[in-house]
Design a protein around this nucleic acid. Structure first.
Lengths: 226, 226
DNA sequence: GGACCGGGTCACAGTTTGATGACACAACCC
DNA sequence: GGGTTGTGTCATCAAACTGTGACCCGGTCC
């Protein structure tokens, strides 16, 4: 079961302990603070996976804490409020929050929302990813195209997985050489190119006009779904 | 302004048209269907950026549509329901939905939630800066002007990135030669000018009156948003 | 006005880059 | 051993890129 490090900020002690207890029961590990200042002070050290912030806080309010977290980090944030006023929801989400939950909240619901957000945040690391016809199973190390299994050699597979790990990002040859091969190789070689060619020959319907692995001249290669 | 291609599935015609109108007013482009089957049939062709699904649908219900979408794709999903029962929320979110909204929903709220989800979905994979119509994605090394992709050559791109790294600052030719080119070049040449020229030709609507890259006579060039 | 200066514009040839296919060699499996 | 597979290297080719220099133009300074 997925267990998250949760940063909880809530000034009302009874609500705080109740939530902490409920979330802990769901299997999460919770660190809680009564004020935004404390939370911000410790956020770097604790490296939580998600923050749950009460909006009404003494001192800096939750929305402002959210804004400051956003400046620091990609950390997912759920805002918690007693008010259900629409305007607040808009302001909160515009501040960069990922969700907005109105108190009192059923623990199972909060837990489901936490998981939904974390699932999205980590979908980049889940076992199986689908890009149109192409399915890459990182657990089973299998690649299928239009339900037909494709055989990739170990090096080809490592290369493809590395590209897929950063969808949409351009990865340069030096980086790929370092990560996919051992760094013992000369920086200047057509090795990466040759391997990309081989992968393309296997997964691209028309290797001459690649749909998945794109060449970015002068920089490297980019995997992006069609 | 961020504009999304939204796939809307809602069987009640009056709710559907109302939502479609409201979302269109917010600047989104909406395609709507009355049933999940239709939506699933067209999802590949339309390539929406986000799906909004009513839970109560004739035939396949919204939660099931959501599950099937998840199998296909990384597409973000918002479930829409008239029921506020906690159990439904949990089931929906477990099916892989990114958010769960209870009808009737204030259009601004729905819009804010859409934007929050899209922001997360895209911030996970890219690192982009926007200057009006001009979007520069430093991770994907892609430049778009009014949503149309612009092809820049390696040197042009390096030059633009360098200018953009210091918005509002004047960078002189010697500096640009050193950073963008290797320092092996003679300081006196039309090299930088020519390259700026080429970039302008591609990204400036009217290259003769540049909006992005300004010439500062006697000093160099300055990138500043319009 | 005329010289001068800094920058804009353009075409092109030489260079760079990546695609491609062949090949050699090592590892592995019968 | 003999075949098979995987992988690094190389030569070759076409396409893309880019530095250069000639020329132009508008301001500026005597």
């Amino acid at each position: 079961m997925r267990v998250a490090g949760i940063l909880l900020v809530e000034d009302d002690p009874s609500v705080r302990t109740a939530l902490e207890l409920a979330l802990t029961r769901q299997g999460h590990s919770v660190t809680s603070y009564a004020t935004g200042e404390e939370a911000l002070d410790h956020i770097r050290a604790r490296r939580p996976e998600i923050a749950i912030l009460d909006v009404m806080l003494p001192g800096i309010d939750g929305v402002e804490v959210c804004r400051r977290i956003r400046k620091l980090d990609q950390l997912p944030v759920i805002l918690l409020t007693a008010r259900g006023d629409d305007l607040d929801v808009v302001v909160g989400l515009e501040a960069g929050a990922d969700d907005y939950v109105v108190k009192p909240v059923e623990p199972r619901v909060l837990d489901a929302r936490i998981r939904a957000i974390l699932r999205r945040a980590e979908s980049a690391t889940s076992d199986r990813i689908t890009f149109g016809d192409l399915v890459i199973d990182r657990g089973a190390l299998k690649v299928t195209l239009a339900s037909k299994e494709i055989h990739l050699t170990p090096t080809e597979l490592r290369l493809l997985l590395e590209l897929v790990r950063h969808p949409g990002q351009v990865l340069n040859r030096r980086y790929l050489l370092r990560v996919v091969w051992d760094h013992t190789h000369v920086a200047d070689s057509r090795l990466v190119d040759a391997c990309v060619q081989r992968v393309r020959a296997k997964i691209e319907p028309r290797p001459a006009e690649p749909v998945f692995i794109h060449t970015v001249r002068g920089f490297g290669y980019r995997f992006s779904p069609p």
